[in-house]
Design a protein around this nucleic acid. Sequence first.
DNA 1: GCCAAAATCACCCGAAAGCATGACGACAGA
DNA 2: TCTGTCGTCATGCTTTCGGGTGATTTTGGC
Lengths: 159, 159
Amino acid sequence: MKRHVLIFGLVGGVLVTLLKLMEYRFLVIEHSFEIYGGLIALTFAVLGIWLGIRLNGRRQAVIVKEVVVPVAIRGGDSFTVNESKRDELGITPRELEILGLVAMGLSNREIAGKLFVSENTVKTHCSRAFEKLGARRRTQAVQLGKEFGLLGETGRPNG
Amino acid sequence: MKRHVLIFGLVGGVLVTLLKLMEYRFLVIEHSFEIYGGLIALTFAVLGIWLGIRLNGRRQAVIVKEVVVPVAIRGGDSFTVNESKRDELGITPRELEILGLVAMGLSNREIAGKLFVSENTVKTHCSRAFEKLGARRRTQAVQLGKEFGLLGETGRPNG
DNA sequence: GCCAAAATCACCCGAAAGCATGACGACAGA
DNA sequence: TCTGTCGTCATGCTTTCGGGTGATTTTGGC
């Protein structure tokens, strides 16, 4: 994706050089500024349009083609794996528990009611968990939690 | 669609005129050609990028992604299932796309930046998607989206 | 060309979430 | 006993979300 920006820059540089050379060779021509200006404008407009299309080109209608593989992949000791990951990140059991409820789509207030603690406590646990996960939002925390294998598909904590 | 081309032309014309005026007023400055050339290149590049993005807006490139799925979990043709589910709920492709980005943990602002639309637009799409899903929070929407098979584990829209 | 659906954008306002900070008790281990 | 961690709670503040409403524009089908 950045490749296109790079190409843009390179082509732009080459064009600038070329135009500069042209300038020195044909500067004697009348109205040269207009010609060069027009050329520059044209080329950079085209380049810009190209880059714009490239840049935005991944407007995708993703078709998911599933590759079926045998089960038994998920066999490993899920518990210890997640346990170690949890330890590695320094996330406490309580934080993970709350993270699980967050993943299930509950609000802080609902979580507080469910666990019989105050909403502020829930927020504190959330904040600490987010910090340890490197997340700034609860949705991001959920996503990271699942990537790290801390949460299952149902939002249930794995560990 | 044509409107953007028109705007492009108009703005371009105005800019050319402005630069031409500048040329006559400040031509005495040394290295003016480089400055004007750079300005022209910059402005037209920006304009071009803008036009490219606008022009490319709706076109969708079909991307086929292969996903490894354990055989036991897989149920039927994922594509058609999700497509029909999406239709059943009345969720538009755009809404699903934004839902996917929400699932990836992005904020409305980040989504807006990624899709080159305003934050308000993202919020509108979100609200409609939430309403159709019966969700009151984005975390809940993500959870429901996954339950309905609209979103994959990575937050990628399925369909 | 016309119509309906979809997409875009704006504005306001209240609620929820998040951040920083501090504090206090329980409890395990050194 | 001292220390560190954990869980709990609070307060104040800023940001983000979400709902409501209305509007324009684009697009695709007829």
